[in-house]
Computed example of a mutant assay.
Amino acid sequence: MLSYYLYKLHFSGPVHIGPDHGQSPLESSMTTMHSDSFFSALCVEAARYGGSEMVENLVDDARQSRMVLSDLLPCRGEELFLPKPNLPFVQARVEADSENRKEFKKMRFVPISMWTDYCKFCFEEKPFPLKKCKEAMQGFSYPDQRQRVAVEGSEDPEPYFLQATSFPPDSSLYCILGFDSGQTRSKWEQLLNSLAWSGIGGKRSSGWGKFEVSSPDPLENHQVLHAGLSAKDAPMWITLNTSLPTDEELRSIAQQSSYLLCRRGGFVDGEAYKKRTVYAFSAGSCVHTRFEGDVLDLAPKGRRAVYRMLKPILLGVFK
């Protein structure tokens, strides 16, 4: 049985979070970060201080489910936001609503204070205050585009654009981590606090991506999250992170799932070669049966291991 804690990351400046599609990665920046990217950043930080042995220890924690983590998700003040569940019967109903169809499609997150209302909208077809939900996310973050100049050898300087994400003082990102023991928690919290100084995302050498971590907040203080994550049985589960069932699990749950896929690829940190690309479930994917997932080594043949954590953190959804 895992104990869950919530951590808020308050960024001191811009952060560049590369897009899923892999095209022109410098010219756009995401608002949130996938859990597997965040896990990789923690492993890189661990390698600096403890070498490959410490990294293997972290990977073993993940493989044995002694630790799980969510995506980095939006929060504003005391308000947390959850991924909008990908429910096909709701999408079909929204398609018939010509007045609000586009706004519902644009909506990516649901304020946790409105989560019960949204579940009633989904399962009982009760009205949902879409306008209020939209207003809650307005101005949460803003794109921060800058022009840079690339200078390579004797070639002429070549200008290019680089985009980051910046957050107003009341906005930040949060993650949920679950631990099997106090010892595991202490180890990962030390690493998280160390990563805050190094930063996450791209262009860290320019000081981007640095953050302060809030004190751990036990999930017992958040009723919706605590009830959903501690549930042993639920009619439906949504993923709060980037995850992927094993091949065997996928065969058994594919017909009962409604998932969004995201491309997971990119270059290895500090190296000139790419990881192997996989497609994983995005946060907000819905399944009727829990799954375990795995931690994959996606390094090209003959290269050092490159780990991608695709173990799920599942929130029970009740009608």
Rank of each mutant, 00 (worst) to 15 (best):
Q138V: 06
L162K: 13
S252P: 08
V151K: 09
M137R: 01
E158H: 14
K232T: 14
A136F: 08
C262S: 05
L177R: 08
A150S: 12
S205N: 02
G202K: 05
E248Q: 07
F211V: 00
E155V: 10
S171W: 07
A231M: 11
S230W: 02
E212H: 13
V224R: 06
N193V: 07
S141D: 03
V149F: 15
T184V: 14
Q145D: 08
A231V: 07
Y142L: 13
F167I: 00
Q190Y: 13
A227V: 07
L244I: 03
G209D: 04
H226P: 05
E220C: 04
C262G: 11
Q223K: 07
S172T: 03
E189V: 08
P235D: 04
S186G: 12
A254Y: 10
S172K: 05
G153M: 09
Q147G: 15
T165V: 05
G209Y: 09
D233A: 15
I200C: 14
P143L: 12
A196K: 06
Q147C: 15
K203I: 07
F167G: 00
P216S: 08
A196M: 04
S214R: 01
Y142E: 11
F179M: 14
V149A: 10
P169Q: 15
K203A: 13
Q223D: 09
E158Y: 15
L162A: 13
C175E: 07
E152T: 10
G228L: 01
D170S: 13
G139S: 00
Q223S: 12
S172L: 08
E249F: 10
K210A: 10
L260W: 01
W197A: 15
E248R: 04
S252Y: 06
F179Q: 10
A136C: 12
P245K: 00
K232M: 12
P168D: 06
R146A: 04
P218D: 04
E189P: 08
G153A: 03
P216V: 03
G228C: 02
F161I: 10
W197Y: 14
N193T: 04
L173I: 00
P168C: 00
Y174H: 03
L173S: 02
K232R: 13
D144W: 05
L192F: 01
I176V: 11
Y142I: 13
L191T: 11
P216I: 03
G207A: 02
F211K: 01
S154N: 15
G178I: 11
